[in-house]
């Protein structure tokens, strides 16, 4: 027991907590001082972050480990080679409030094999590929739906048809929803790949100077539908 033989009160002297002045202000859970008038709780938004990395062992686990360790919300991660044999591109779709997106970019930049990190504009080209294996009891109807979504039949047998669909995430979501009526056996999706438009380079040179103001200026919900739908 905590029994204290001497019975003296232990501790230090001084005004008790309730006798002390207390400040009026407060911070929110993101550490931002809040004006009680305009309580600014930041809502999560979905965005695409493209990173150029050294094509070396362990870099993928460095990146994925960072996301799990720091509890960043990640929706998809794709990785593949680039025009340069020594470089790979990792494209991440994340969903976080602005301060979280900012942290993701900064923490990615800290990884030594990461060469550059860039949050893509809302008009960036984004594509995902899905293979959807469907019961082929009604082949004509399946083909009609596949057509609707510019799908391609890549395999068919008396029992199943497998359709390839390419497009934005929303388009694939919609296609899958429509295919559900036939009975879906299996799905595989690649996750989002993306490039910046026009002459813009997706892999901006490593910029540690990207200001926090830039992130703040992004519109709240910048995941606009992609061009093809």
């Amino acid at each position: 027991m905590s029994g204290d033989g001497s019975g003296r009160r232990r501790g230090l002297d001084g005004p008790a907590p309730e006798e002390r002045p207390t400040p009026a202000g407060r911070r929110n859970e993101q550490g931002i001082r809040i004006d009680p008038e305009v309580e600014a709780k930041q809502e999560p938004r979905r965005t695409v972050i493209s990173t150029l990395v050294e094509h070396e062992p362990g870099v993928l686990s460095d990146v994925s480990g960072l996301f799990s360790r720091r509890q960043f919300n990640i929706e998809s991660l794709t990785v593949g080679p680039t025009t340069d044999d020594d470089r790979a591109r990792i494209t991440l779709v994340v969903e976080e409030p602005d301060p979280g997106i900012d942290q993701i970019k900064k923490q990615l930049r800290k990884l030594i094999p990461v060469i550059s990190v860039r949050e893509l504009e809302s008009d960036a080209m984004r594509r995902e590929l899905a293979l959807v294996k469907i019961d082929a009891d009604q082949p004509a109807e399946v083909a009609a739906v596949a057509d609707m979504y510019d799908g391609k039949t890549v395999d068919s047998c008396p029992e199943t048809a497998t359709i390839e669909i390419t497009g934005s995430r929303q388009k694939i979501d919609a296609a899958i929803e429509t295919f559900e009526q036939f009975g879906i056996r299996e799905i595989d999706r690649t996750g989002t790949t993306a490039l910046a438009r026009g002459t813009q380079s997706t892999a901006a040179p490593a910029s540690t100077t990207e200001s926090t103001a830039e992130a703040a200026s992004h519109p709240q919900n910048q995941y606009a539908p992609a061009d093809d739908d």
Partner: peptide, 29 residues
């Protein structure tokens, strides 16, 4: 966090950009 220096504008000097506004928002990063 809610009660940390709640009346203070924070000037945060750090060599690691990821520490800026990680836990406490920096008014002057």
């Amino acid at each position: 966090i809610e009660t940390f220096a709640p009346d203070a504008e924070i000037i945060h000097v750090d060599i690691d950009p990821a520490e800026i506004s990680k836990n406490i928002h920096a008014d002057y990063p």
